[in-house]
């Protein structure tokens, strides 16, 4: 178990390096720099001395391979560089953003699981029924509706018209601020989960061991509880893991929309300002989150399915 965690952690290193490499090259070919974006804000950056000074300060005169090398060696010491904009270490720019993002991702996933899995179950137990039809049509709609539009809709209805919940912003520990963005973010994984669960249940219902259970005289409620659920969970877990993992990345639009001070909104602002060290840091966090969640999912598999062993 511990060996598994250590090994998986070590396996993350090449992935992280590859990601760093890709971001680095993308930003070395993207036109514009931090300085041009300062000029775009109307600051006078024509003074040659100032330009030279800034380029020197941020090491922008070095060739790309040297900058990459410096970045990677810094990374090994958990040094992600200095933000161009705030002149703070990137780690301290990211740190306060982390918890809101994790909170949003977990809240969205909780919503998705709590609503999606039971819906899928109920739909599968009565395939072809009205409930099944309505649920699946809703699920497809949930998957196809753009998040920002849904977010706006939620804001309009629950904040503006009904006044039940705040329309945007973040307060530490405030559940009220969390609800709307979490739902906006959670609808698409919820729809996906409902569909996966339904397919999973229908699949398991046809399994031979379900017939065995019926032959044993097991009642229908017990059949679902003791024989079907756990087998379906194995299937659903894969979808859930991938969803939570990618939620932090998907949250970018929602965070921006709800002025949520997470990694996503930081990423958008930093890209606009060409604050490349922060962009790299933010992407790294999103990638790390994905990798860690995947590892946890693999551990959870071993708990649910005796056929899978982690060692």
């Amino acid at each position: 178990m511990i060996g598994f965690i250590v090994r998986r952690t070590l396996q993350m290193i090449p992935t992280i390096l590859a990601v760093v490499l890709i971001i680095f090259f993308i930003f070395s070919v993207v036109p514009g720099s931090f300085l041009t974006s300062l000029m775009a804000e109307g600051r006078n950056m024509t003074n040659a001395d100032t330009l030279a000074h800034l380029n020197e300060q941020f090491g922008l005169n070095d060739p790309v391979p040297v900058r990459l090398w410096n970045y990677v060696t810094g990374l090994l010491q958990f040094d992600l560089g200095i933000s161009y904009r705030t002149r703070e270490p990137v780690t301290s720019v990211l740190a306060p953003r982390l918890w809101p993002s994790v909170q949003l991702a977990l809240a969205a996933m909780t919503f998705a699981a709590v609503v999606g899995i039971p819906l899928g179950f109920l739909a599968a137990l009565r395939p072809g029924s009205l409930f099944d039809g309505v649920t699946m049509v809703t699920a497809v709609s949930g998957l196809s509706v753009p998040e920002f539009w849904l977010g706006l809709l939620l804001m309009y209805v629950f904040a503006l018209q009904l006044g039940w919940l705040p329309s945007f912003g973040y307060q530490p520990g405030s559940l009220r601020h969390l609800i709307l963005p979490a739902i906006a973010l959670g609808v698409s994984p919820m729809a996906l989960l409902a569909r996966t669960t339904r397919a999973g249940v229908l699949d398991v219902m046809n399994a031979d061991f379900v017939r065995t259970a019926r032959a044993k005289g097991v009642s229908e409620p017990r059949l679902v509880r003791a024989h079907i659920t756990r087998n379906v969970l194995v299937l659903v877990l894969t979808t859930m893991g991938l969803q939570i993992g990618s939620l932090m990345g998907q949250a970018i639009v929602i965070e921006k929309l709800f002025s949520w001070p997470g990694i996503g909104s930081l990423l958008v602002d930093s890209v606009a300002a060409r604050d490349i060290p922060v962009v790299q840091g933010a992407v790294l966090v999103i990638v790390l989150w994905f990798l860690i969640i995947n590892m946890l999912v693999d551990l959870a598999y071993a708990l649910i399915d005796p056929r899978i062993k982690v060692a």
Binding site: A207, D208, F209, R211, T212, A213, A215, A226, H227, R230, N231, V234, I304, D305, P306, R307
Partner: peptide, 14 residues
């Protein structure tokens, strides 16, 4: 009743 396929007739996770 017992069935033909012992490989799949038992619940894999119990």
């Amino acid at each position: 009743m017992i069935f033909q396929e012992p490989m799949t007739a038992l619940n894999p996770v119990v």
